[in-house]
Amino acid sequence: IERSKPLAHGVRVRLHHGTRSTNARIRLTDREELQPGTNSLARLRLDEPFVTLRGDRFVLRSMDGVTVGGGTVLDPSATGRRPDPSWLEALESNDAKKAVPLALARKPTQGMTTEELSLVLGLPSDEVSRALQSDARVETIGNIHVAAGEVVAARERLLTALERRAAKRPENPEITVAEARTATGLSTPLADAVLADVTFEAVRVTDTGVSLPHANSVPPELEREAEQLLQDLQAAGPQPPAAEPTPAMRLLIKRGDAVELGGSLFTAREAAESVLERIKTICRESGEISLSGLRDSLGTSRKYAQAWLEYSDAAGVTSRTGDVRVLTRRHRQTM
């Protein structure tokens, strides 16, 4: 307003928007003082949250109620300490071709749909769509637009994570979908669009997880190691030696050929089933089973008897009552 006083950088004013108003502080972008009758790009820091849209108009009054100016909202969700002049200029120009790439660059891991771009830029959807066509600075995955190069970089991050997993866990090279999303470094919707892209043939996506296509075949040396380990577990029966969860052991567990008793003890599946059947038989004949009773029945040490009873409890076959175990209701009903 020509007859008003100059507006200094940092001055406090009263902002009026529709039927609401709040105090605000002016941050001029290119000068220390705005002279009457001139205009400038500025950031307004409000004392309380306001819902505004691109293109909304507002009035500024001094703290004593005198109207000193007004303006138009360019970016209602501005971030950072300093505004980006090129971004504000693109918004002010209403040029979709110029503004779309800058808008996407501000959300590199999220991307935006055509509708979201239209809302942020305050431009018609058809105008935004035309700007998106054949623009080398933009790529589209599903219905989400992102800055060029972001999808390629995300795929490379995912492939690196899968290669590390395959090298570390050859018996189970698959990661969960949630882990795959995290590996891409993208937002969930954009990561899901990348995983669903049929042109991304470098990964294998299933209901259970994500892996490299060639990583699902077990290396021959690991297969041989697993076969030998299974034979050793079967020979050990109810007294398996303490062992580490090696890749071969994890492979047997994944296939269901081995189970974990706890306390670094692993056993063959058939041995576990045999011991559980013996526990059921003793309980049905005697009504209960004690640690010493199972120890004598198996001909093992107290350590193994304790591990087997805890495994039986975890499997839902027995429950502890004092110093003894009894069959759970489900297994009593099958007597």
Rank of each mutant, 00 (worst) to 15 (best):
D126P: 00
A178I: 10
D323E: 10
R31A: 14
A147S: 11
M249Y: 06
G256Y: 08
K254N: 14
R61A: 15
D135L: 01
G80A: 05
L119S: 15
R82W: 11
T72N: 05
I144S: 04
D64N: 06
E115T: 15
E310K: 12
R31K: 12
R155W: 00
I175V: 14
A166G: 09
G18P: 07
P219Q: 11
E260H: 01
E156V: 05
Q110F: 08
S211L: 11
S264F: 08
Q231V: 13
A96G: 08
G122D: 10
E227T: 13
E288D: 02
E127P: 00
V152L: 05
R81A: 15
H9S: 09
L91E: 09
A272I: 03
A96W: 03
A103P: 08
A153M: 03
Q110K: 15
R325T: 01
G142Y: 08
R332V: 02
R45F: 06
G111I: 13
R302D: 07
T114F: 04
L190T: 09
G65Y: 06
H16S: 13
D30R: 09
L186F: 04
T22G: 05
G263Q: 06
P101A: 11
A167K: 12
T113Y: 12
K280R: 15
R14D: 11
T22W: 03
T281E: 15
P245R: 01
R137W: 00
I289K: 03
K254Q: 09
R137D: 08
Y304M: 09
V205G: 09
M112S: 15
T199Q: 13
R31F: 08
E273A: 08
F50C: 06
A161Q: 07
A167F: 00
K97V: 15
H214M: 06
L15V: 14
S319C: 01
Y311E: 02
P76E: 03
D64Y: 07
R25P: 00
V100N: 07
S264A: 10
E221I: 12
A99H: 10
A248Q: 06
R54D: 06
T334H: 07
A215W: 05
M63R: 14
N216G: 02
E273C: 02
S40A: 15
P241I: 03
E225C: 01
F266W: 11
G185P: 08
R330A: 14
D95C: 07
L212T: 10
T140S: 11
R295H: 02
L233C: 07
A307D: 00
K168M: 09
A191G: 05
H331D: 11
A166Q: 08
H17N: 03
A136Y: 05
A242T: 08
S77C: 09
A314C: 00
V68A: 09
L44S: 05
D47K: 01
D323T: 11
G70M: 11
S297Y: 01
R157C: 04
A153T: 08
G71Q: 04
R250I: 00
S217K: 14
R20P: 00
R169T: 14
H331C: 00
P83G: 02
D296K: 03
A167L: 11
V151L: 14
E89L: 10
R57K: 13
H145L: 06
A161P: 04
I282T: 05
A226F: 09
L104C: 12
V73I: 15
L88T: 04
L159F: 00
L265F: 10
V128R: 04
T19C: 00
K5W: 07
T72H: 04
F200N: 13
S93F: 12
L309E: 02
T182M: 09
Q234P: 00
R57F: 03
S118G: 15
